[in-house]
């Protein structure tokens, strides 16, 4: 099953390679990984999308927790969450295709963020379904380039586990 995991980490050099190294060294899957700053300048937030059976995901979460630079790990898939991804798609758009491209952009509430005589660059934000759908519709027009941010996600309700609670994570007791 797919899991989206939020990992709050120290904002220090080398942390990304510790997390990436954990996944490669232990043969865990990693579908996407995005990192960014938070309102606290000493802390960064990573959103990881991974797959595996329960035992593997439990290991992933425990191994992440074990990293000294990891402050908190939340498996968002355990509750309700909102996930979004942004994509920039550059398509070739000439003649009649230009109108078709704009129609599709409109339907998906996407935006044209750049335009040249031969191309449009479209920005779309949404969940995976929406993104896949617009990509499929734009394909016939000719996609020249495509860049995705990877998913970021946030829990819908306030997560009760406080930062200091890392060792109290219920996964650690397996209960």
């Amino acid at each position: 099953m797919e899991h989206i995991i939020s990992v709050m980490v120290e904002n220090k050099f080398g942390v990304l390679s510790r997390v990436a190294g954990l996944f490669s060294g232990r043969g865990f899957n990693i579908d996407s990984l995005s990192v960014g700053p938070t309102i606290d300048p000493t802390v960064s937030m990573m959103t990881l999308v991974t797959r595996g059976d329960d035992r593997i995901v439990e290991q992933i979460i425990k191994q992440l927790n074990k990293l000294i630079d990891v402050i908190k790990v939340i498996d968002l898939s355990e509750g309700a969450f909102v996930a979004r991804e942004t994509v920039l798609i550059k398509i070739s758009a000439k003649g009649e295709d230009r109108a078709e491209a704009l129609r599709i952009t409109d339907i998906f509430r996407a935006r044209v963020v750049d335009s040249t005589p031969a191309t449009y660059t479209i920005e779309v934000t949404g969940d995976t379904n929406k993104i896949e759908a617009i990509i499929n519709l734009l394909k016939p027009l000719g996609i020249k380039d495509l860049v995705r941010t990877g998913r970021i996600a946030i829990a819908r309700e306030e997560i009760k586990t406080a930062v200091q609670d890392k060792p109290q994570d219920k996964k650690r007791f397996g209960t």
Partner: peptide, 17 residues
């Protein structure tokens, strides 16, 4: 003492970290 050792190989009935 290491939570990653527990439930890594075997299913454990009573884990104690």
């Amino acid at each position: 003492i290491d939570p990653t050792s527990i439930q890594k190989i075997m299913n454990v009935d009573i884990p104690i970290v």
